[in-house]
Design a protein around this nucleic acid. Structure first.
Length: 376
RNA sequence: GCGAUUGUGGUAUAACGGUUAUUACGUCUGGUUGUGGUCCGGGAAACGAGGGUUCGACUCCCUUCUUUCGCC
């Protein structure tokens, strides 16, 4: 059984539809994962995820290991059972938390030192420990511990991050293989390598080439959404795609605006995730078929229309802008749920539509008709 | 009626005889991309009224109105 199979290829672009096989089951690509850092997409229940057909989510292994801890999750049968979520559970390693001044302390070649924000104690995470955590959480797809450089860092510093990322990827892969040696292919947790290197083609190339040699189940492109332009971002995506074999799934980490998702799909990206739809929703930013709606603006105070008249989600079928605006301004949980549901639904539907257009050969035209509303 | 007390953006407050009067919430507005979290910017908006002292008054004095309390 192959981990990843391509089912359809777009004739004009690199867009494609595939099937990713995990121990939990199959999932059609491309797909977008809501971010469920602590085991829930904030304000969104597992039933909500099922209803919007979010068939994969990503949680954070590092954060979950701090609370509630891997012991509880393991005893509850793993994260999927704990949540009663039938879809695919991805976990992120915690490498991304290096951008968080609140918990990141420092890193050396051996691993990363974090401060546990709950207890204040220092915790040193090595690639091996990180793999152990993700195996105990029992997600279906794990991420390597990577070293994520910030956009403004010097090239020298980004180069050091890349070297650490490569070194750690090797250690993750070896430990992960060793721990799953006796497990059949169908029951294995998958492991993705993460390509770093900022906007520097030579560093991204170096990283992608080295990770390719290690033969991961899939490849993530990390370190975007941090200040670079969309042009810079997709130049690197194209470069990584040219290096990684076609039969490997590609995951563009952290990316979740409608236009970037479509730009990614066009270039053959298979997986996306972002806190954008939920975080933005809670702060009054709503995706619609006519672009972003800023619900806090006063002009919506008496607006009886749905968030998006072209949306068929339960929120748009039942509630007015005026009501959701009121709830959000009052910081009511219900408002956050309705807004978050709509935004996540919007992206799930956007990708369903994109896939239909890939099958029909009209993807490029479809993309153009959507992104004109989402230009910066 | 008598005595005391109070008056600063929508609300709650700060300071000072000397440029554009503080802060918070609210309000308007921009941001938000592998989530330590209900976040981060920017704007509009006030000295109760009238007179006096002074080079200069939101600040000191007087009158009036106002708030609150006590007494008859």
């Amino acid at each position: 059984m192959q981990t990843f199979t391509i089912k359809h290829k777009d004739k004009k672009t690199s867009a494609r539809i595939g099937i990713l096989n995990t121990k939990k089951g199959k999932i059609e690509t491309p797909f977008f994962m809501p971010v469920a850092t602590k085991g829930t997409a904030k304000y969104i229940s597992t039933e909500d995820l099922k209803q919007m057909q979010a068939n994969a989510i990503i949680s954070n292994a590092l954060i979950l290991s701090l609370r509630p801890g891997t012991k509880l999750i393991k005893k509850m049968g793993g994260l999927g059972k704990f949540m009663n979520y039938p879809g695919i559970n991805f976990t992120d390693s915690g490498g991304f938390q290096m951008y968080s001044k609140q918990i990141y302390l420092k890193a050396d070649n051996k691993g990363v030192l974090f401060r546990n924000p709950i207890s204040g104690e220092k915790i040193f995470i090595t690639p091996e420990k990180d793999m152990q955590i993700q195996l105990e959480i029992n997600s279906d797809v794990a991420m390597c511990l990577d070293s994520m450089p910030l956009y403004e860092e010097s090239k020298k510093s980004i180069k050091q991050s890349v070297e650490k990322t490569i070194m750690w990827a090797k250690r993750c892969k070896e430990y992960h293989n060793k721990k799953q040696k006796k497990i059949s292919q169908e029951k294995r947790q998958l492991l993705f390598g993460i390509i770093q290197g900022g906007i520097h083609p030579d560093l991204r190339t170096q990283c992608a080439e080295k990770l390719k040699e290690m033969n991961f189940d899939g490849y993530s492109i990390g370190g975007f959404g941090l200040g670079e332009t969309i042009k810079e971002e997709f130049k690197i995506v194209e470069l990584c795609k040219s290096i990684i074999p076609k039969n490997k799934p590609i995951y563009l980490m952290g990316i979740g605006t409608p236009n970037e998702i479509l730009e990614g799909i066009e270039r053959g990206v298979d997986i996306f995730d972002s806190r954008m739809p939920t975080q933005n929703a809670r702060r009054g930013g709503l995706f619609t078929s006519k672009g972003k709606l800023k619900l806090y603006n006063k002009k919506y105070e008496f607006d009886k229309k749905p968030l998006d008249k072209n949306c068929d989600c339960f929120v748009c079928k039942n509630y007015t802008r005026a009501y959701i605006r009121h709830l959000l301004l009052q910081k009511e949980g219900t408002g956050r749920r309705l807004a978050s549901f709509h935004n996540l639904y919007y992206l799930q539907r956007l990708i369903r539509q994109a896939k239909q257009h890939i099958k029909k050969g009209t993807f490029a035209k479809f993309k153009k008709s959507v992104i004109k509303y989402y230009k910066k």
